[in-house]
């Protein structure tokens, strides 16, 4: 549906996006995961036409999309990182306002408003000011307003940042429903557990793509073994010692009361850690991200 080739964007000396390429599959949830400064928001803003790219090409359904992204805007709904509706307007007034500025026909707007308010459980709050809603409700309202125009493509920039866990679950249930309706969804998130909800995953760091793949394939093809070590000494003391040795320090990281060890070669480095127990566990996306970010570092030219 969307194909990006060699996209770059700099702000002064800072490279926000560094020659990235990817292809977003249609009808799936694609998650762009990475820490702050990875370039996720910049990428979304360029896609939707809020920022100009320095170089690269964006194709929408095979056709090149120019800087104003008019073609993409026609089919896409975009939800910015922060709550971007009007706090002093009621839920209903926000619906009416955005329905109008998104060019939704009146009868369609009325019908969609009713459906979306019910679907998101916000019907009872229609007269409440948006500023008085909870974090989760605000995000549901923001999502609902972009759904008024029934976009084929939904772009959500960190939609669950600052949202409570229950509301997050509800939010992702709605997203799942939207996917089942055949829509293509792009979500950026700094939370890797959230990225597990995507069908396709793009891992980013410092304006580059570390890895992009179907989540299932990514996990299946992940060759390093992951061990959970139960330390027999103070966990922080051990890590403090390890930090000094650059050859092995990147293979270990703290996870709660345990130390995770990524076993990537023949040599077993776990001997460096005084531990009472070592169990091999299936890697989560977090572990995969750490591997690509710390150890792999694009050795196969996968970082582009």
């Amino acid at each position: 549906m969307i194909k990006v080739e060699n996209l770059s964007k700099s702000f002064g000396a800072i490279k926000a996006l560094d020659n990235i390429s990817f292809e977003i599959p249609k009808g799936k949830i694609t998650i762009f995961a990475g820490a702050d400064g990875a370039g996720k928001s910049t990428l979304f803003k360029i896609l939707i036409g809020l920022l100009k790219k320095d170089k690269g090409k964006i194709f929408v359904d095979g056709e090149i999309s120019e800087n104003n992204s008019e073609k993409l805007r026609k089919i896409a709904g975009y939800m910015p990182e922060r709550f971007s509706l009007y706090q002093d307007l009621t839920v209903e007034e926000n619906f009416d306002f955005f329905g109008e500025v998104y060019g939704v026909e009146k009868p369609r707007k009325k019908e969609m408003k009713k459906t979306l308010l019910e679907k998101t459980g916000m019907a009872a709050f229609r007269k409440r000011r948006a500023g008085a809603l909870s974090g989760g409700m605000k995000q549901k309202l923001a999502l609902s307003t972009i759904l008024l125009s029934s976009p084929e493509l939904i772009i959500l920039d960190e939609p669950t940042t600052g949202v409570d866990p229950l509301s997050r679950i509800e939010f992702f249930n709605i997203i799942e429903e939207l996917k089942n309706e055949g829509r293509t969804i792009l979500i950026s998130t700094p939370y890797l557990d959230e990225a597990e909800k995507g069908g396709f995953v793009v891992l980013m760091k410092g304006g580059k793509i570390l890895k992009q793949q179907e989540l299932k394939e990514l996990k299946e093809s992940f060759t390093p073994k992951l061990f959970r070590l139960t330390p027999s000494e103070n966990i922080f003391k051990i890590m403090k010692k390890l930090v000094k040795d650059s050859n092995i320090r990147e293979k270990f990281y703290i996870r709660g009361n345990f130390i995770h060890y990524l076993h990537t070669g023949e040599k077993d480095f776990s001997v460096y850690i005084p531990h009472s127990e070592s169990i091999e566990i299936p890697p989560k996306l977090e572990d995969i991200y750490i591997y690509y970010e710390r150890i792999f570092k694009g050795k196969e030219g996968d970082i582009n």
Partner: peptide
Amino acid sequence: EQQTIDTLLISRL
């Protein structure tokens, strides 16, 4: 500041 300008800019306005 409220980022609502982005929402306005991608609208049909």
